[in-house]
């Protein structure tokens, strides 16, 4: 049932998806660092995700995929 996925290596940790999320369930994961040296975004509570796709719209790095 994994429906919200992120290619963590593409993510630059800008946080535009975090701000765009109407449910405020995304965050920048400080414990993970990718090869670019950025901390990627992370889903905190997928059960509350409405799959609106705002994070997909605002991601400049084509990192997020939402399946619905």
């Amino acid at each position: 049932m994994a429906k919200w996925t992120i290619q963590a290596e593409r993510c630059k940790g800008c946080g535009l998806c975090v701000d765009a999320c109407p449910k405020q369930i995304l965050r920048i994961d400080p414990d993970v660092i990718n090869h670019k040296g950025h901390s990627p975004a992370q889903m905190t509570d997928e059960t509350r995700c409405t799959k609106c796709g705002f994070c997909v719209l605002m991601c400049p790095d084509c990192a997020i995929t939402v399946e619905r």
Binding site: E9, R10, K12, G13, C14, G15, L16, K36, H38, K51, G53, V56, L57, C59, P60, D61, C62, I64, T65, V66, E67, R68
Partner: peptide, 22 residues
């Protein structure tokens, strides 16, 4: 339905733009 955001007419290359650049 899958809502991915990489169009077919774009390559897999990671962009060099700064974080948050639109």
């Amino acid at each position: 339905m899958s809502k991915t955001n990489k169009p077919h007419s774009m390559t897999e290359t990671h962009t060099h733009y700064c974080p948050g650049c639109t």
